[in-house]
Nucleic acid binder design. Structure first.
Lengths: 189, 189
DNA sequence: CCTTCCCAAACGAACGATCGTTCGCTAAAC
DNA sequence: GTTTAGCGAACGATCGTTCGTTTGGGAAGG
């Protein structure tokens, strides 16, 4: 019988928070997920809220790291935008639980933590906006649309990907990035 | 002292479900919203779940009616698409509670009802897809993109509008429809 | 206009279930 | 032999819901 670690608890919490929501997940549910009693979880953590904070922070770090690595791409702003899109999709598909919880369960965070999430989202959106602006300057992207609105539209598309895209079957991940990138730059035609 | 009607209860439920989620809303919370005890609500309804069903169904009917009126627009497929976009935005902004609950709280519905919501969403998405296809045929819309993916992208943008767009301040609703329509047809440039 | 009666809205106590959490204990791994 | 994951009973609070009772505003009749 292998024992459970704090890491197992955080991961299981992410799974259930993403699937049923914070308020839809009880500590006894979470225990059952690991073959434990609810009370046993308190050998690893102090409060349920602490689990939410940890999962959400992980989601935030993943998005932040992805944005940073997109900014580090050499080449045109369009190249960096492509990496931004690909990175976001990787986060959302490879870390569904953390990403979903970060995007959907922030309202269940205590106010101070929720504010940090909002700030993190704003910074992330700011990176995208600057990418669009830089593309208008270096000529690698069209300068037609309002970068603020364009950024919001792009994020709306990216954040929803995990709700409908499933591997395998249908197009693969690279093709999805291509489709989104071309929709973003040219719309339906 | 004006008494409360069942309608008041359903509307308050929509408000709280949209704001805090189904599991984040207790019957005593809901009572307090109306100046009542939680138990008093049962003069108007049978179960909490019944309230969720009713709010979600209202959301579904609003989207369905909007789609129907878009299909009834005479002219090109592009004209109908524009009305589809404008109608969706009206639903999402004028009926925030029902729309949000329909879009976000379906997972808290009992399976039979949840399936009906999924089916309703599929039909709605189907209307959009047919509009895009018809536009490719009558030449009023470009035929470049996969209509299935384009439909998903458009809905992703539309469903997120209520999270960031606030009247008044900034652009008005008509301008928003224009921006979305032009992003959909031409992307950022 | 006043009274009477009625009915639905609201109360408030209480139900059993479940919530997050505590604590003293056991048992197994290093 | 020390540590620590896990148990299991129990805490007070809150959950959705029930039920007998109280209440107040509108219809009906004088």
């Amino acid at each position: 019988m292998t024992r459970n670690t704090r890491e197992d608890v955080v991961q299981a919490a992410g799974r259930l928070f993403a699937e049923r929501g914070y308020h839809g997940t009880s500590m006894r549910d979470l225990g059952k997920e690991l073959g434990l009693l609810g009370s046993s979880l308190y050998s690893h953590i102090d409060t349920k809220q602490e689990l939410l904070v940890e999962v959400v922070e992980r989601g935030g770090r993943l998005f932040q790291a992805s944005a940073a690595s997109a900014l580090a791409v050499e080449g045109s702003a369009a190249d960096r935008l492509r990496r931004f899109v690909a990175g976001h999709i990787d986060v959302v598909l490879d870390h569904v639980d953390e990403a979903r919880t970060f995007l959907n369960e922030a309202r269940s965070l205590e106010p101070a933590y929720r504010r940090r999430v909002v700030a993190a989202r704003d910074r992330y959106e700011g990176v995208l906006r600057e990418l669009l602006g830089a593309g208008a300057v270096d000529g690698s992207l069209a300068a037609g649309a309002d970068p603020k609105l364009a950024g919001i539209f792009i994020l709306s598309i990216l954040n929803a990907v995990d709700r409908w895209f499933h591997e395998p079957g249908g197009i693969d991940r690279d093709a999805l990035v291509d489709e989104i990138f071309s929709f973003v730059t040219a719309g339906i035609g």
